[in-house]
């Protein structure tokens, strides 16, 4: 059965109101630009989005916030977005802030068949509230649970028709774990090649985790803080 779909619109088929999505990326680096645009056009609403950040006002998940498509964000840092702030303060948007390492491990656990784990991060802080704590070897740890995500939307550099993925630079970030964690995983890639073209030694995500794949178009790859040597 082919995993290849024609474009982002076809790829997001089945994403409906009130679902939980994972979206890859750190800041605007490695975000699934094509799928986000397609979600904006689809008008789907009430989404819970698990993503390290929430984009900026006019790019990334910020575009979905403008369309009031997001009910809840689960993120580690959401500081670059004025519309986000407005919706949060007005009560239109819920946010669950999770330490970044805990967020990445919860996503990894989701894809690894592990329901919960213990981490030292957040012990003694408000992150710990309502969670089980336990002592191991004299240190205190907080129990954190995996997620339940309907779709994972990831962006890779190269992919093949078997669904294997390779990332570039720091655009890898949350994408590999999210690819493992979706009930349905959609991968958009800058270059889609025939199976056999990628060296199996250098695959970052094996195709077993990827359900749908397509070659994206018109990547903007916006830079948040362009910083050069003076």
């Amino acid at each position: 059965m082919s995993k290849i779909v024609s474009d982002a619109k076809a790829a997001i088929e089945g994403i409906s109101d009130n679902m939980t999505l994972m979206l890859g990326g750190f800041g605007l680096c490695g975000i699934p630009e094509n799928c986000i645009k397609a979600l904006v056009q689809s008008g789907v609403k009430g989404l819970t989005c698990i993503s390290n950040n929430a984009g900026v006002d006019d790019f990334g998940i910020g575009l979905m916030l403008q369309g009031k498509q997001v009910k809840k964000m689960i993120s580690s840092y959401v500081g670059e977005n004025a519309e986000f702030e407005r919706q949060l303060l007005s009560g239109e948007l819920e946010v669950d802030l999770v330490p970044q390492g805990t967020l990445s491990e919860r996503i990894r656990a989701t894809g690894a068949g592990i329901p919960a784990f213990f981490t030292p991060a957040g012990y003694g802080t408000e992150v710990q509230e309502g969670k089980e704590v336990r002592e191991f070897n004299g240190r205190m740890y907080v129990m954190e649970e995996s997620f339940n995500s309907d779709f994972a939307l990831v962006k890779a550099w190269k992919g093949d028709t078997a669904g294997n993925l390779i990332f570039k630079g720091t655009a890898r970030n949350f994408n590999p774990m999210m690819a493992m964690a979706g009930k349905v995983t959609i991968a958009e890639v800058e270059e889609l090649v025939p199976a056999g073209s990628l060296d199996p030694n250098f695959i970052h995500v094996p195709g077993i985790f990827v359900n749908r794949i397509f070659q994206g178009v018109d990547y903007e790859k916006r830079i948040e803080q362009r910083t050069v040597q003076s």
Binding site: S76, P99, Q100, A121
Partner: peptide, 10 residues
């Protein structure tokens, strides 16, 4: 405004 802890807690 609460921006989040990022990786600081870890």
């Amino acid at each position: 405004m609460v921006k989040g802890m990022g990786g600081a807690m870890d």
